[in-house]
C-alpha cells in the first residue's frame, strides 16, 4: 500500500476506528516509513492540542439560573402557541356542538349566567412566575381548551391569575379573572367573575369548569399606628388574654374588607388580628392532620373594642 492510502487511514488509526486487518496494514507500513511516522506524530499532537483546548474552554457549566430561565421560556413559548391558536379559532364554531354534547355538564352549570360567544382577538397571558412545568402544562391545557375559550370575553386580555397546585391527585385549578361588565352584559359594576378550569394534567384535559361570581372590594392598607392600636385593643380583651396565656402568638394584623358588622355603618374600620398556637399533644393525637390552631380577633378600630372572636383549626 502506498503512503497516500495509509495517510488517509491515520486519523481512524489514532481514533481506534480501524478493523484489526486495517490496523495491521497500517502498523506494517509505519514500521518501514519514517515519513508516515512523522505524519502520525503530527496528527496525534494535533488531536492532543485540540482536546486540551476543548477541556480549557468547555470546563464551564451553565449558570445556576439556567433551569429558571428554561421555565420562563416554556411559559413564553406557551404564549406564542396561544397566539397561533387565536388565529385558528374561527374554526371553533364547527367543533363547538360536538364538544358540548360530549361534556354537557359545564354548560348546564353555567346556564343562564353566561353569554356564549365566539372569541375574536383574545390574548391570554400566563404570569412569568409559574415555576413548575406541570403548572405550565396545566396552563397550556386550560388555555387551549375550546370550552374555556368560549367562556372568556372577546377582544380583551384575560390573565390566568393563578394556577393552584393540587394537594393530592392531578387536578390543577387554572383561574381566569374576568372584570365584570365585559361580556357579561347587565352585571353590576365591581362584579368579578372567575372562570376556574379544572385541569387533569395526567390526562391532559379540562375535566370541569366553574364560574365564580364575587364582588370587588378595595383593600385599604393599614398604617403602623392602626396595626398597633388593633393589637392593643385585642390584648385588652379577656378572651384574647386567655388564648395568649395558653401559648398563642400574635402573627399579623390584616384588613377585613368583607366584614360588615351588622350594627355599624360602612365607614367603620374593622381589622383582624391573627393569633396562632401549636395544638397540644392530646389534641394532636385525636386529630393528627391539623397542627395549628388559629383565631381571628375582629377589632373595631373606631369603637376600640373586639367585635368577634373566630376560632379555627388547620
Amino acid at each position: 500500500m502506498e503512503c497516500k492510502d495509509i495517510d488517509e487511514m491515520l486519523i481512524s488509526y489514532l481514533d481506534g476506528e480501524l478493523t484489526n486487518e486495517e490496523k495491521e496494514v497500517v502498523e506494517l507500513h509505519l514500521s518501514t516509513c519514517p515519513r508516515c511516522r512523522r505524519e502520525l506524530e503530527m496528527l496525534s499532537a494535533t488531536q492532543y492540542r485540540l482536546r486540551q483546548s476543548f477541556a480549557a474552554r468547555a470546563s464551564k457549566a451553565p449558570s445556576p439560573r439556567a433551569w429558571a430561565g428554561l421555565q420562563q421560556r416554556l411559559v413564553a413559548e406557551e404564549q406564542s402557541k396561544v397566539a397561533v391558536f387565536s388565529v385558528a379559532r374561527a374554526k371553533l364554531g364547527k367543533i363547538k356542538g360536538r364538544l358540548s354534547s360530549r361534556q354537557p355538564m359545564w354548560k348546564s352549570a353555567l346556564a343562564g349566567a353566561l353569554v356564549v360567544a365566539l372569541i375574536a382577538g383574545l390574548v391570554l397571558i400566563v404570569p412569568s412566575h409559574f415555576g413548575q412545568s406541570q403548572e405550565v402544562l396545566a396552563a397550556e391545557i386550560a388555555q387551549n381548551d375550546p370550552q374555556v375559550h368560549e367562556m372568556l370575553p372577546e377582544g380583551t386580555t384575560v390573565k390566568i391569575t393563578k394556577i393552584m397546585k393540587p394537594r393530592e391527585g392531578d387536578i390543577f385549578h387554572a383561574l381566569f379573572l374576568i372584570p365584570g361588565g365585559s361580556i357579561w352584559g347587565g352585571e353590576d359594576e365591581g362584579e368579578v367573575i372567575m372562570i376556574d378550569a379544572l385541569v387533569n394534567v395526567r390526562e391532559r384535559k379540562v375535566v370541569g369548569l366553574r364560574a365564580i361570581k364575587s364582588r370587588e372590594t378595595p383593600i385599604t392598607p393599614l398604617s403602623v399606628a392602626e396595626r398597633k392600636k388593633a393589637v392593643e385593643i385585642a390584648k385588652a380583651d379577656s378572651r384574647v388574654q386567655e388564648i395568649l396565656d395558653g401559648g398563642a402568638e400574635i402573627r399579623r394584623v390584616i384588613p377585613l374588607p368583607f366584614f360588615k358588622p351588622a350594627d355599624s355603618s360602612l365607614t367603620v374600620k374593622v381589622v383582624g388580628v391573627i393569633l396562632t398556637a401549636p395544638l397540644s399533644n392530646s389534641q394532636a393525637e385525636v386529630a393528627p392532620k391539623p397542627r395549628v390552631q388559629r383565631w381571628i380577633v375582629v377589632v373595631n378600630l373606631d369603637e376600640g373594642k373586639v367585635v368577634e372572636l373566630i376560632g379555627a383549626t388547620r
Binding site: A58, A61, A66, W67, Q132, S133, Q134
Partner: peptide, 25 residues
Amino acid sequence: QSGDSSAFETLFRRYKDMVFRTALL
C-alpha cells in the same frame, strides 16, 4: 413521558452540561 415534571428537571440537570458545552464550543 408520563408527565412527571420532576423527571423532566432530572433530565435537564443530567444533560445540561453536555448540551451547554457543545453549544459553547
